[in-house]
Every structure is written in C-alpha cells, then in structure tokens.
Nucleic acid binder design. Structure first.
Length: 105
DNA sequence: AGGTTGACGGTTG
DNA sequence: GCAACCGCCAACC
C-alpha cells in the first residue's frame, strides 16, 4: 500500500512520510513508511519525493544519499535550501490531499 | 521479557 | 527558527 501511494506523488512535488502512511491506511505510522522505503531499495519508486513533514531530507546532511536526493529534486524543479525542500510550494496541496484520501477509502 | 533503534512527527521552551 | 523532549511501533538484539 505504501509503495502504491509513493508512486502517486507527481513529478516536481514532494510528500511527507506521515502523509504517505495516512493515505496508505496507516494513520500515525510515519516511521513504518520510512521502514518500508528503507526495505524498498532496488524497486523503481520515486523515493526522492518523500521528505519529512517540515521538508527536511531524512538522510544525514552530507551523506551520499542526501546528496543524491537533493540532486533528483532539484532536477525536477523542487527548490531545496539547506537540505530542506520548500514544502510550502511543492508539497501536496490540501485539496489534492483530501481528494486522494477520499479515493483511498 | 526488557532495552534499543530508527528514511517520523507534534509540542514546548 | 532551533533544539530538546516525548509518543509512536515493529524489528532486533
């Protein structure tokens, strides 16, 4: 379920672990979403579009994965300042979020 | 069985 | 805005 929701994130946009878990029918289990993505290594998913609720990248600053994620987001037009994506502009808009919530239920 | 550990998130100072 | 806490829960020691 979690992987399915991740594929729904439009190119050039980002979503939080909490939102992913929520839409996957697992409210309040953001950590599980993170665990699922960690285990998803190898699968073809837009994992780089998943960030923390405040927009910061989940990988330790300076790490190889963090650099890779930042690069992928920038290439899609998502501004990333100091390892933090601009959630205000590129995050899921409220209307789209509620719409997806309705569909998934 | 009990303690630790996270690709997290909301609250508080 | 930031950092320290605390709640969370499944997987591992």
């Amino acid at each position: 379920q979690i992987y399915a929701v991740v594929t729904l994130i439009p190119t050039g946009h980002v979503a939080s672990y909490g939102q992913i878990a929520d839409l996957a029918g697992l409210p309040g289990r953001a950590r599980l979403a993170g665990k699922a993505l960690k285990d998803s290594a190898g699968l073809d998913l837009p994992w780089h579009r998943v960030v923390r609720a405040d927009g910061t990248l989940a990988f330790p600053a300076g790490s190889e994965k963090a650099r890779e994620q930042r690069e992928k987001l920038l290439s899609e037009g998502v501004t990333v300042n100091n390892m933090r994506a601009d959630i205000k502009r590129y995050g899921w808009q409220p209307d789209l979020y509620t719409m997806l919530h309705k569909i998934s239920s």
